[in-house]
Simulated assay, not measured.
Amino acid sequence: MTETAPAPANDTGHKMSAKNVNVFYGSTQAIRDVSIDIDMDHVTAFIGPSGCGKSTFLRTLNRMNDTVASARVEGDIRLDGEDIYSPSMDVVQLRARVGMVFQKPNPFPKSIYENVAYGPRIHGLAASKADMDGIVERSLKRAGLWEEVKDRLSDSGTALSGGQQQRLCIARAIAVDPEVILMDEPCSALDPIATAKIEELIHELRGRYAIVIVTHNMQQAARVSQRTAFFHLGTLVEYGVTDDIFTNPRQERTKDYITGRYG
C-alpha cells in the first residue's frame, strides 16, 4: 500500500489528474498505483533518487511512453477531465497541449526561427508570414531569448550555447500555445548561470502554464516549486506543499531522503 498524502486542495480545480497509475516495461513494473493532481497555478516538482520512477511517470502525462514498444500504462490520467489514454485522443494534439522539455537540449538542425515556427506550422496556427513572425517573437520573448537572438534568427539553433539551446527548446514548446509544460531535468546539463536563467524563466511562466519539473536537485525543487512529489521505488511516497515537504515531511522515507540518509 502506498503512503500517498492527499493532494492539496485547489479552488480552481485540477488541470491534470492521475489516479491509480501503473506503468510496466514488459514484465517489470516501474510505477505502482500513483495518484496525483497537477494545478494550473503551481509549479510541481518531482523529486527522488535515480531510478525511482519520476521521469517514467512524467512521460505518462503526454503519452511519451507510447514510443517504447514494451511499455504499458494502466490507470486513469485526465487533462481538463478528458481521458488522455482514450482511443479517441489525438496523440499529436495531446503533445501540443502538454509539451515536453528534455534533459539534454535538443534543438532541430534548423534555424532558430524554424525551430520555433515548426510546431505552429504543423498545427496551422499562423495564417500568414506576419502571424508566424509574431508567434516566433512572442515565444522567444517568453523564453527570455529574444534579445540574444533577434538579429540572427537565420542562424542554426544548434550553434547556440547549451543554456540558450534549452531556452530555445522551451520557446519551441510554448509556440504551439500548450496548457501544460513537462520538464525532465531541464538544467542537469547546464552550468550554474544557465541554470539560474532557466529557473527565473520557470518563475515567469508560472500561472500561464501548468508546469511539472523532474529534478534530482532538491535545492532547485525548493526554489522553483510550490508543490513537491517524492517518488521512491516506483511509488509516490508523499505529495504536498513544497515548504512542508522540505521542513516537515509526514513520511519517514521522505525525511530520510531530504536529510541525505539515502538517495
Rank of each mutant, 00 (worst) to 15 (best):
70 S>A: 13
124 G>M: 08
90 D>H: 01
94 L>T: 00
111 S>N: 10
120 P>F: 04
118 Y>S: 13
77 I>T: 08
86 S>G: 04
113 Y>V: 08
127 A>H: 08
74 E>F: 08
68 V>Y: 13
125 L>F: 10
102 F>R: 06
71 A>G: 13
117 A>C: 12
78 R>Y: 06
86 S>M: 01
89 M>E: 06
109 P>D: 04
87 P>G: 02
103 Q>R: 04
73 V>D: 14
126 A>H: 05
127 A>M: 03
132 M>L: 15
86 S>I: 00
103 Q>F: 09
70 S>F: 01
99 G>Y: 02
95 R>D: 03
108 F>Q: 05
110 K>E: 14
123 H>N: 07
92 V>P: 00
122 I>A: 11
115 N>D: 14
104 K>F: 15
106 N>E: 10
79 L>V: 08
126 A>W: 07
68 V>P: 05
93 Q>Y: 04
96 A>L: 01
74 E>A: 14
99 G>N: 01
105 P>G: 08
116 V>A: 10
99 G>T: 00
116 V>I: 14
126 A>M: 05
110 K>P: 07
99 G>S: 14
90 D>T: 01
73 V>W: 08
91 V>G: 02
132 M>H: 12
116 V>M: 13
130 A>L: 09
76 D>M: 11
95 R>L: 00
126 A>I: 02
84 I>R: 02
89 M>G: 03
93 Q>K: 12
68 V>S: 08
89 M>A: 10
112 I>Q: 13
85 Y>N: 09
115 N>S: 11
79 L>P: 09
78 R>E: 15
127 A>W: 03
81 G>E: 13
125 L>W: 10
97 R>H: 03
80 D>E: 15
71 A>L: 13
116 V>Q: 12
127 A>P: 02
95 R>K: 02
104 K>T: 14
96 A>N: 05
84 I>Y: 04
130 A>R: 15
82 E>V: 15
105 P>W: 09
117 A>I: 10
121 R>G: 01
107 P>C: 08
126 A>V: 03
85 Y>G: 05
120 P>W: 08
75 G>R: 09
83 D>R: 07
133 D>A: 11
85 Y>I: 05
104 K>E: 12
125 L>M: 15
95 R>E: 04
123 H>D: 06
89 M>C: 10
71 A>F: 12
98 V>K: 02
114 E>A: 14
104 K>A: 13
118 Y>R: 03
123 H>E: 05
112 I>P: 07
100 M>S: 09
112 I>F: 10
129 K>R: 15
115 N>E: 11
132 M>S: 11
122 I>V: 14
